[in-house]
Simulated assay, not measured.
Amino acid sequence: MQLNSARQAWHDCYYQPWDRQGSFIEQLGLLGAMVQATEKQRHASHAVHQVLAGGVQAAISRLPSQLRAFGNFMYAPGCSDDDREAAEEAVFNMAMSRSGRMTAAKVERCEYVAKGVMFRYRRMHQGGQSSAQDPFASPEWFKRWIDEVYGVTLPSCAWARDWEPFVQICFEVCEDLDKRALSPVAAAIYEMKEAA
C-alpha cells in the first residue's frame, strides 16, 4: 500500500486482492473438484500493507457516520447501498440548508439533482487525482441523464436561473464533505510517514 494521497489510501485500505479462497471457488466451479495447490506465502510486504491499512481504517472509523458514508461512496472499492443513501441524504440536506425558499415540486426534483451532482463529482474524482472531466458539464446531458436514470424531467426554460445555482451549491457541499472526510486520513498518512 502506497501512501500517495488520502483518496488512494481510502481505497487501498479496503481493497481485497484476488486470493486463494477465490481461486478455490473458481476451480471448484470449473472442474467440479478441488485442485491441490501450494499455499500463498505471506511476505513482509503483506504485513506492512496490513499495518498501513489498519492506520487508515482507524482514522476512517473515527469519522462521523455521514462523513464516513460519503468517503465510502467516493473511494471505497465496494460501496454499500446504505453508504450511498446516507451520502445522498447528507448532500441533499446540506444543499437545501444553503438554498433559498422553493416550491415543494422543485424540492422534490432537487433531490435528484443532488444525486446527479454526486454521480458527477464521484466520476470527476475517481482514481484519487481529481483529474477526470465532468461527464455531464452540459445542462442538456445532465438533464437527459436524470430523466433516463430516475425518470425525473427538469424544466429547462431558464436553466441558469432555476437549476444552476442549486447544482453549484451541491458541488460546494460535495467539496466540503470531501475535505472533512479526507482530512483525518491525510493526517494519519502524515503521521505514518513521519514515523517511518
Rank of each mutant, 00 (worst) to 15 (best):
D81H: 13
W18T: 14
H125A: 06
S61F: 07
A188E: 02
G54A: 05
R62K: 10
Y190G: 13
P135M: 15
G29M: 11
A59P: 03
P155W: 09
A186P: 14
E85F: 00
W18C: 12
H11C: 07
R20V: 07
A58E: 07
M74R: 04
S45P: 06
E26G: 12
A160E: 15
I169L: 00
N72K: 06
D134H: 05
G116K: 08
A137Q: 06
L182C: 03
Q129N: 05
P135G: 15
I169A: 01
H49I: 00
A53Q: 09
Q8S: 10
S97T: 11
A44S: 11
D147Y: 09
D134V: 03
V51F: 15
W141N: 15
S138N: 04
A86C: 11
C157V: 14
L3I: 07
A33K: 14
W163T: 10
V113K: 07
C174H: 02
F166N: 07
V35H: 13
T103F: 03
E111T: 00
A195M: 08
W145Y: 12
E172R: 02
D83V: 02
L154G: 02
W159P: 02
W159N: 04
I25L: 13
E111C: 00
C13Q: 00
Q168L: 08
A196K: 05
E88V: 01
S65W: 08
E89M: 12
N93I: 06
K193P: 13
R109V: 02
K143S: 08
L52D: 04
Q8R: 09
G127H: 04
E191Q: 12
N93D: 11
A132Y: 05
R62A: 10
G100K: 05
D82K: 12
A105N: 11
F92G: 13
S138I: 03
F171L: 03
M118P: 04
R68M: 05
T103S: 08
L67C: 10
P17N: 11
R161C: 06
T153C: 15
G116N: 07
A76I: 01
E191L: 10
D81C: 12
E140C: 08
M102V: 01
S5Q: 06
S65A: 12
K193C: 14
E111S: 01
P135V: 15
L31V: 10
V149G: 07
A6Q: 08
E148A: 12
V107F: 00
C170A: 04
M34W: 15
N4G: 08
I169F: 01
V107Y: 04
I60W: 08
N4L: 10
R161V: 11
H125W: 05
R101C: 08
R84S: 06
F136V: 13
E148S: 12
A6F: 09
F136W: 13
V117A: 01
C110Y: 01
Q41P: 11
Y15S: 03
C170V: 03
Y15N: 03
Y190F: 14
A86L: 11
W159M: 01
A114C: 05
A95S: 05
A105H: 09
P77E: 01
F119V: 14
